[in-house]
Each structure stands twice: as structure tokens, then as C-alpha cells.
Simulated assay, not measured.
Amino acid sequence: MYEQPQLKEMYITDLTLSMTNPRFPREVKSEAEAILTFFQLKKVGPGKIMSLIEDIVETGIVLENFIVLKKDGEFIVHDGNRRLTALKLLYNNTSEIIKNDYPKVYENLKIMKENFDVRKLKLNVQVYTDSNSMANHVAKLHSGEQNGKGQINWDSNEKDTFNSQHLNQPLGLGNLIYKKLEKTAEKRELYNKLQKGSFATTLNRIFGYSNIRKRIFQLDRGLKVDLTDSVHFNKICEMIEFFISKNATVADVYTAEMASNFFEEIKPISQGNPEGKEIEGNPEGKEIEGNPEGKEIEG
């Protein structure tokens, strides 16, 4: 039977960084060494720490609970050490630790500390006295889905939908494509194929490239692909079918040049041809000599 953690409100001065953080390549001997090690880790580094500090200062809260083991009178953090590092750097003269190696972060911290008193920030903490119970909790937080026991992360569609519902952010084109396909009866088979992968951000990428919009959709700079236009929508579906048929991934279209090469076989929408049909003798949809505007030819 595992111990139930005790929920507490605590302050930065109550908490101690772990010296045995699994992210560290070796055990450290002090909090100062732990902070410097976070800065040196490729997966963390000064940029991500600074971003976290900025978020804490801007919102005035730390979103997640700290998981703590009470041992020998100390409250040692075993989940939340990166957050605690950010807080420690806002406290008193702790930032002197990074002054020489990370002067830009140090200068930014000086400015932030003038307008933010980290000592008053209440932190939500789950305190264990049994190390096995603490370890069970932390392991489940960091071990993926575990057949439902752990957290199931949102895919790009789900993130986009949440941001639209609650943060007043417009849905990305990729998510809009999913929703349009789902509601279009004759495209249900394509929708089901698309559902097998998570392609929303990849679709955002593909149809956001200016060279794709210009060559295939015949759009001037700044104009976007229009899902309400049946010709655009059919061309989008054609490109998605092609993408899926090649078992492609984002790696195949990661840059504008790669996407252009990948979709080289896709013919452009014909100018002056609203149904998107090929003009006989002009399969590439090129302008007809003497008719640069792509207007219909009389007769």
C-alpha cells in the first residue's frame, strides 16, 4: 500500500533541489552545482530555463505541483527541479552563480527581480515521507502513457482545438482541413486515412509554404489557401491522398524546397479554369500565349 501524499502550500525557502536528479550525468554536491548543471544540459539549457522564468513572472504562478520527499528535516524536490531552479534564480543573489558563464540571462534576471518578489509566491507541494511512494508517483509522471496509467498527451489537433476553445486562438489550417473532411460525406474515406496519423501541423506546414501556394494554387504573395473554394479544397484532397500514398512524414516536406520537390508531380490549378480541369493540349495549366490573363477564349 502506497502512502498518500500530504498537500501543502510552501515557499521557495522551504524547498531543496535534488542532488540525484536523473537528468544529471553525475551526482552533484550542492544546489549551486545543480543549477549550473541544468544550464549545461542540452535538453534544458539557458534558453528553456529563461522561458520558464518569464512565464512564472508573467503569470505569477507555478502551474504544476512539486513532488517532494521529506527526509532528515529537508523537503527535497523530486519532480519540479527545473521549476525550482527558475525560482531559485529569482531569489536573493542566487543568480550570481551564472553571472560569468551566462551574462545575458544574468542581466535579464536583474530586471525581472525588480518587479517580482518570488518570496511571496505560494507553491503547491505534495509531500511524501516514504521514498517508495514518492518514486512510484514520479516514475508514473515521466514514463509515458503506460497503457492508460500515465498521462496521454494531446496530438496537434487536440492542442489546436483546446487553444481555439479557451485561448481565443484561430484554428490552424491543418485542423480546419480535418474538420472539413469529417463533415464531407464523399471525403470520409480520406478522413479515415488521415485519422491514422497526426498530420495537422504537417498540413499547416505544406499549405503555408509560399512556393506551394504560388505554383499549385496560383496565389499571389500573402494570399492563403481557401477551404471554402471547391477547387482549392479538391486540390488539397489530391495532395493529401498523394502524401498518404507515399507513406510520407513531416521529414519529407520539412522545408519549402523539400515540399516543392515532393509535390513536383502535382499539377497546378489552371488559371481562368474555375473547375480546375485540364485544358486540352495544356496539361500543366500554363498560360496560353496571347492570353496572359488566363481569360476564357471566345468560342
Rank of each mutant, 00 (worst) to 15 (best):
K295L: 10
F217P: 12
K180S: 09
L227V: 09
F24A: 03
K149L: 15
K187P: 05
G148I: 05
D101V: 02
N132G: 06
V57Y: 07
G148H: 10
H232E: 08
A259M: 09
N261Q: 13
V62N: 04
V62S: 07
P103T: 10
K214R: 14
E241M: 09
A248F: 07
K183P: 03
K110S: 11
S30Y: 01
E257T: 11
L173C: 04
D252I: 09
I98A: 08
S270L: 03
Q165C: 09
I269C: 04
V68Q: 04
H232T: 08
N147M: 12
I297E: 06
S95G: 00
F39G: 10
S131T: 05
R83G: 07
A259R: 02
N136S: 12
L173N: 10
D101K: 14
V225R: 00
G73Y: 01
T161V: 13
I12N: 08
E257K: 12
V62A: 10
P25N: 01
I67F: 13
G290N: 00
T161W: 07
M1E: 09
E275M: 12
M134V: 11
Q218R: 15
D14V: 02
L63A: 13
V125R: 03
I236Q: 07
K196L: 14
T129D: 00
K149Q: 12
F38G: 08
P274W: 00
Y178S: 02
N132P: 02
G144R: 05
L41G: 10
G80F: 01
M1P: 06
H137V: 08
E275D: 12
K43Y: 05
E58V: 01
S143R: 11
S30G: 03
D72T: 06
L176Y: 04
Y11H: 13
F199Y: 15
K224P: 05
N273Q: 14
L190Y: 12
A34Q: 00
D130V: 04
Y209L: 08
V105P: 01
N153P: 04
D252G: 07
E107I: 13
K8A: 12
F217T: 10
I297K: 06
I236D: 08
R119K: 15
G60Q: 08
P170V: 09
Y191F: 15
L223Q: 14
R23I: 00
T249I: 06
T37M: 14
L141D: 07
D101I: 04
G276V: 02
M112I: 06
N234I: 08
E33H: 07
F263W: 03
N108T: 03
P292G: 10
R82V: 02
S198V: 10
L173A: 02
P283E: 08
L90M: 05
K267C: 03
K267M: 06
E278V: 14
K42R: 13
N211K: 14
I206E: 06
G148K: 04
D155N: 15
G294Y: 04
P103M: 08
Q40W: 01
K99E: 15
V28W: 00
P268Y: 00
R221M: 09
Q169C: 01
E58C: 04
I177A: 08
G290Q: 01
N234W: 07
L63T: 13
I61D: 12
R215N: 11
T201P: 00
F243Q: 07
E289Y: 11
N234G: 14
I266R: 01
I288S: 01
T202V: 05
K224G: 11
K159D: 05
S210L: 11
N108W: 02
E293V: 01
K214G: 09
E27T: 13
N132E: 13
I236V: 15
